[in-house]
Design a protein around this nucleic acid. Structure first.
Length: 315
RNA sequence: CGCGGGGUAGAGCAGUUGGCAGCUCGCCAGGCCCAUAACCUGGAGGCCGUGAGUUCGAAUCUCACCCCCGCAA
């Protein structure tokens, strides 16, 4: 039986639920001792603006792990140093960590990242992979340096992107894969079995974080591209368009575009009893949608109550 | 008290000078057809979110409350 002194002392840094399975795996592993969790401050969420703790904070408290939530992580540099951590692990923290912090742990600082680096550094990396029509993406664990997702790669695994994958479904799958992947990789890393490989900066690309407005559909783009766009924007910010001065979310479309180019982009028309929208090249069949103020529903249901919709122009 | 839309048949929606509750789809029964998600005939299905108030009379006007949703964060 190992005592706590023999365990690897880890500080876990993360905010969103992407890092949750990995965090949980570390907590459950007898080889590790999580001495501190660092996460973003509680923030108002939802229509009622209820102050809500991050998923990482909730999980940490459930496991009696101390939680710190500094505005800036530099504010707690001293506290981190006093703990003399062996390793720090970062997963979806949403804040750049300065070198002075990265240098504190004996074995440095590892980051679990949701793409195959150097492709897609940054934050909206899962969306980007779907948007670009990639066949596969994956997880990378890198040893962090002062740059944003620029550190040398320690381990990677790939994951196929399914034709029906949304950013949400792919996110959940990658997050789940992160559990064993991280725990195993950390052990091998501590055992000195993994050698960090520098990233090829020539191949690097960057995915900036998304805003609500990034979900606005440009109907002049090809249908094939917009189909990926709808999946990439789900479940946030969601692909949306304008109709009669109101926002309308397009939550899902049929995967195969139809080869019709008879209308102006954004024009709606009937196709096999379904609702089709003309795009820049070919057209898309809308499966489910949501008008602001209303619930999400199938296009069939929507059309029942909106006889004037068919034939209008969106966007 | 952040801003705004909404709650009417199983579903989606109409319905305010207050006056018998409607449409499309679905469902049930029957008919037509070689056949059908097509078409024809008939039918069932409503505490109009809840509670008060105004009125001869309220889905409709007034007040309070509950619930759903969009924005914002």
């Amino acid at each position: 039986m190992k005592n706590d002194n023999a365990k690897c002392k880890i500080i876990f840094i993360g905010t969103s639920d992407f890092g949750l399975p990995a965090f949980q795996a570390l907590l459950n592993d007898q080889n590790f001792s999580i001495v501190l969790a660092i996460t973003q401050p509680d923030k108002p969420v939802g229509r009622k603006q209820i102050i809500t703790a991050s998923p990482i904070k909730v999980a940490a408290e459930k496991n009696n792990i101390t939680v710190l939530q500094p505005e800036h992580i530099m504010d707690i540099r001293e506290k981190i140093a006093l703990l003399k951590p062996d390793l720090m692990i970062v997963a979806a923290y949403a804040q750049l960590i300065p070198e002075q912090i990265l240098n504190i742990p004996k074995f440095g600082c590892l980051n679990l990242h949701a793409s195959l680096l150097p492709k897609y550094r940054g934050s909206s990396v899962i969306q980007k992979a779907i948007l670009n029509g990639d066949e596969q993406t994956g997880l990378s664990i890198i040893k962090m340096d002062k740059g944003l997702d620029t550190g040398p790669i320690i381990a990677q695994i790939t994951e196929k992107i399914k034709p029906q994958d949304t950013a949400e479904s792919l996110h959940d799958r990658l997050a789940a894969l992160g559990a064993d992947f991280l725990a195993d990789t950390v052990k091998q890393y501590l055992a000195g079995q993994l050698i960090p490989q520098p990233q090829n900066n020539q191949l690097a690309s960057f995915a900036r974080s998304l805003k609500k407005s990034d979900g606005l559909i440009d109907w002049s783009k090809p249908a094939r591209e917009l189909e990926r766009f709808v999946r990439a924007m789900w479940s946030w910010p969601v692909a949306w368009t304008w109709w009669q001065g109101k926002q309308m979310k397009i939550s899902s479309v049929q995967s195969e575009p139809i080869e019709i180019n008879s209308y102006k982009p954004g024009k709606t028309f009937k196709y096999n009893n379904g609702l089709a929208v003309q795009c820049g090249k070919d057209a898309l069949i809308v499966k489910t949608m949501q008008l602001e103020g209303k619930n999400q529903m199938t296009s069939e249901e929507f059309l029942r109550g909106h006889k004037d919709f068919m034939g209008s122009v969106l966007g």
